[in-house]
Amino acid sequence: MKKLAGLFLLALMTACTHPKTQQDLSIGKQLSFQRNKGNCLACHVIDDGEAPGNIGPALQHIQTRFTTKEELKALIWDATQFNPQTSMPPFGKNKILTPDEVDHVVDYIWSLNR
């Protein structure tokens, strides 16, 4: 019984320190790479994505560039609110992605810390 409780505690800790499983992140990654969805690769170097563009900055060390995940989400939702001249499409505001899809993309981009 004690062993079981220990396992449970371990599982809980894992779940809390890794709030998103690899599988969840892979949905966001797919949405970020897909041409008819986020298509982030069109402009950004990301992870192992092939043939990335160089219009925007490489997506790395993300958590040193944004204080909170909400900040990142606000930028992806509508970058024009921070810079009207930006080349970045307003993914949430213009419904390029659904709110759900934006969340998946945000989870994935937030995880890019190398």
Binding site: A51, P52, G53, T80, S87
Partner: peptide
């Protein structure tokens, strides 16, 4: 448009840059 681009967004502001390859 949905992507909120002008002709100039690509062909002035980002001329010479890579969009994908």
């Amino acid at each position: 448009g949905q992507l909120n681009f002008s002709c100039a967004s690509c062909h002035v502001d980002n001329a010479g840059k890579f969009i994908r390859s």
